[in-house]
C-alpha cells in the first residue's frame, strides 16, 4: 500500500519535472528572437511544412463535415418546418466548436506527429548535438521557427476549415436539398456574432495551436534517441495533444459561452 502511494508520488514528480523541462524548452526557444534576415526564411519553410502540407486534409475534412452537418441538420429541422435555420445551426456549430477542435485534432495528427518525428530523428542522428558543437543553439534554430509556424498555421487552418465547412453546408443545403439561399445566409448573419462566435472560435484555435505545437516540439526534443523512442514520442504527441485539446476546449467553452 505504502509502495503504491510512493509510486504515485514518484510519477507525480516525474510529470511535474517533464512539465518543468517542457516549460524551459519553450522559454529558451522563445527567449530571444534571432535576427530577421536568417530566421524569416526558416519560418517560411516551417509554415510550408506545418501549414501548407496540412491544407489538403483540412479542406477535405471541412468540406465533408459541413456537408454532413447540413444533411443531418436538415432532417431534424425539417420536422419542425424550420429548415431555413440550417445556416445558423451549421455556422454556429462550426465556428464555436467543430472548426477549432477538429482542426486541432487533425493538426495534431498531421503536423504535430511530423514535427515530433522530425525533431526526434534529428536528435537520434546527432544533428542536434552537431549543431550545438558548431556553436548554434538548436532550440533557437530548430525549435523556435517550428513553434512559431504552429502558432501561425493552426488558427489559419481553423478559419479555412470553418469557411469550407459553411460552403459545404451551402452546397448540400441550398443546392441539393433546396433550402432557400436567401434565408440560409440571412439567418446565419442574423445569429452569428463577429465578436461572440468568430473571435471566440479564433481564440480557441490560437490556444490549441500553442498547446499542440508545444507538446509536439517538446516530445521531439525530449525523445529517447532510438527508433523505438521516436515512435513512442510520436504516439505520445498525438495522444497528449488530443487530450489537451479536448480538455481545454471544455474549459474555454465554459469560460466563453458558459454564462450565456
Amino acid at each position: 500500500m505504502i509502495e503504491r502511494i510512493a509510486a504515485l508520488g514518484r510519477s507525480g514528480l516525474d510529470i511535474l519535472e517533464a512539465m518543468g523541462r517542457s516549460g524551459m524548452v519553450l522559454f529558451h526557444a522563445l527567449w530571444a528572437w534571432p535576427n530577421v534576415r536568417t530566421s524569416f526564411p526558416l519560418l517560411v519553410k516551417q509554415i510550408y511544412a506545418v501549414g501548407v502540407l496540412s491544407m489538403v486534409i483540412i479542406v477535405v475534412s471541412g468540406l465533408f463535415i459541413g456537408m454532413v452537418l447540413a444533411l443531418q441538420g436538415y432532417n431534424i429541422l425539417n420536422r419542425y418546418g424550420s429548415e431555413q435555420a440550417l445556416g445558423q445551426m451549421v455556422a454556429l456549430t462550426l465556428l464555436r466548436e467543430l472548426g477549432p477542435v477538429v482542426t486541432a485534432l487533425l493538426f495534431a495528427g498531421r503536423a504535430g506527429s511530423a514535427l515530433t518525428a522530425e525533431i526526434g530523428l534529428m536528435k537520434t542522428t546527432e544533428q542536434l548535438a552537431s549543431m550545438e558543437m558548431i556553436g548554434v543553439d538548436p532550440l533557437r534554430r530548430i525549435v523556435s521557427p517550428r513553434f512559431w509556424a504552429g502558432f501561425i498555421c493552426m488558427p489559419t487552418l481553423a478559419l479555412i476549415f470553418s469557411s469550407v465547412g459553411v460552403l459545404g453546408a451551402y452546397a448540400v443545403g441550398v443546392l441539393w436539398l433546396g433550402v432557400d439561399g436567401g434565408s440560409f445566409w440571412s439567418n446565419m448573419q442574423g445569429s452569428v456574432e463577429w465578436g461572440e462566435d468568430v473571435m471566440n472560435g479564433f481564440i480557441k484555435s490560437v490556444v490549441f495551436g500553442v498547446v499542440v505545437t508545444w507538446i509536439a516540439v517538446f516530445q521531439g526534443y525530449d525523445t529517447v534517441p532510438t527508433s523505438e523512442g521516436i515512435s513512442r514520442s510520436t504516439t505520445r504527441t498525438v495522444v497528449y495533444a488530443s487530450l489537451a485539446v479536448l480538455g481545454l476546449d471544455f474549459i474555454l467553452t465554459a469560460v466563453m459561452f458558459g454564462e450565456l
Binding site: 530523428l121 546527432e126 549543431m131 558543437m133 558548431i134 556553436g135
Partner: peptide, 27 residues
Amino acid sequence: VRSKMGMLFQSGALFTDLSVYENVAFP
C-alpha cells in the same frame, strides 16, 4: 572555444534538410 573544434559524429549528422554544399557552408 567550440568554433575552434570540429567534430565528426558517428552517423555523420549532416543536416538532412540542407544540401551537401549548404551543410559545409553552415559553420
